[in-house]
Simulated assay, not measured.
Amino acid sequence: MASLATHFSAFVLLFPVGLRRLLCSSSLYLKNPSLYRSKIWYFSEPKWKNFDLYTLTIALPIASFSEIFIFLAFSGHPTYRFAFFQQSAAIFMFWALVILIICRENIDTLHIDEGFVFVIAAISFLVEYSVIGKGISGLGGAMYDILGALTLVCAVCSLYLSIRPCSFCAEFFLSSGLVLKGTWILQLGLSLYTDAFGLKGCKKMSVWPNQENAEWKCDLEEDGLRGVSLMTLLFIGHAIAVLLLSLMLFALVASNWNLRCGEASGPLLAQLDSGHVLMPSSLDLDME
């Protein structure tokens, strides 16, 4: 996370995935709440519509190898070498998770349980949590601690879903957490790594002479305190905006069934529909 470009790339990957997951899980839950079960991925038909999943299979290894190249470029800074290596490993974990999801969907002989995949997802989030903010000190590190807390929430939700896949509340927090992670990463990139969107009296994140860690420097202590207060206020604003967006999307799906994603008409719901069709005929037989 050393530039605006990496933050924007993370936003482009996280925000659509979280939003689509929220839409599909809401569709599935509203179809029949009593039989709702969360899914590790909500597939669409035809399969080419799952371009978000296939995009991740290409983008994540590229991002992982990019971290390795940056790691080699900072060979003179031991702290940076270790941080970039850890970030590359975290991205590779998510890529392995995506490959596992694709294999589970397309190779029937594997018989991979969804609970196991949720556990792997939780482990991936925990690995990401362990590397967030590495090599960043001072006020900027405090802002990345918030991002780490969001990642920890996603890990806990994934672990809980591995035990109770019928919990829509955990699914809602996981999906909303991904959306909030995306918007907050973009906010950090704009506020900490640019002068145009930077905070008054503070300079963009950089490695200062004779230092191994990146640090967010402010001219005066008052500027730093004001910057932290403003960033905290911005996070609260992001959280409220994402919560309202999630609730509005849920209400929109509830009122307009045309917004249902492909998974809302999958095998589980097909069984439900067939069950509803068979009930009247069985009643007729009993009456006869």
Results as ranks from 00 to 15, higher is better:
Q86M: 13
R81I: 10
P33D: 15
L110T: 01
I58M: 07
S75Q: 10
S34V: 14
I62H: 00
Y29E: 11
F94W: 15
E105R: 14
I68P: 03
F43A: 10
Y54N: 06
V117Y: 07
F69W: 02
E114M: 06
Q87C: 01
A96V: 12
F71D: 13
P61K: 06
F43C: 08
A90Y: 04
K39G: 02
R37I: 07
W41V: 10
N50C: 00
I62R: 02
Y36L: 09
T109H: 09
S88E: 06
H77P: 00
W95R: 06
L100G: 13
A96F: 08
F74Q: 10
S88L: 10
V98N: 05
D108G: 07
E114Q: 15
G76E: 14
I68D: 02
M93C: 15
E114A: 08
I101H: 07
K49A: 06
D52M: 03
V117P: 09
W41P: 08
N32R: 14
R81V: 07
E67D: 11
I99A: 11
L53I: 15
P46A: 00
H111K: 09
W48F: 03
W41E: 12
F85E: 10
E45G: 00
S38I: 09
A63F: 05
Q87N: 09
L100H: 12
A83I: 04
D52Y: 04
F116V: 15
P33C: 07
F51C: 06
S44M: 00
A73N: 15
V119E: 14
C103K: 12
I58C: 08
D108P: 01
A96R: 14
A59V: 12
F71P: 04
S75I: 04
I68H: 00
N32F: 01
Y54D: 09
W95E: 08
H111A: 02
F118T: 04
R104D: 13
L110F: 11
V119S: 06
A83S: 12
N106I: 03
L28F: 01
F116Y: 13
L35Q: 13
F85S: 06
F84N: 06
G115F: 01
Q87S: 14
F43M: 01
E45S: 06
V117A: 07
H77S: 14
W95F: 15
N32G: 10
K47F: 03
F116P: 06
K39S: 12
W48V: 00
Y29A: 04
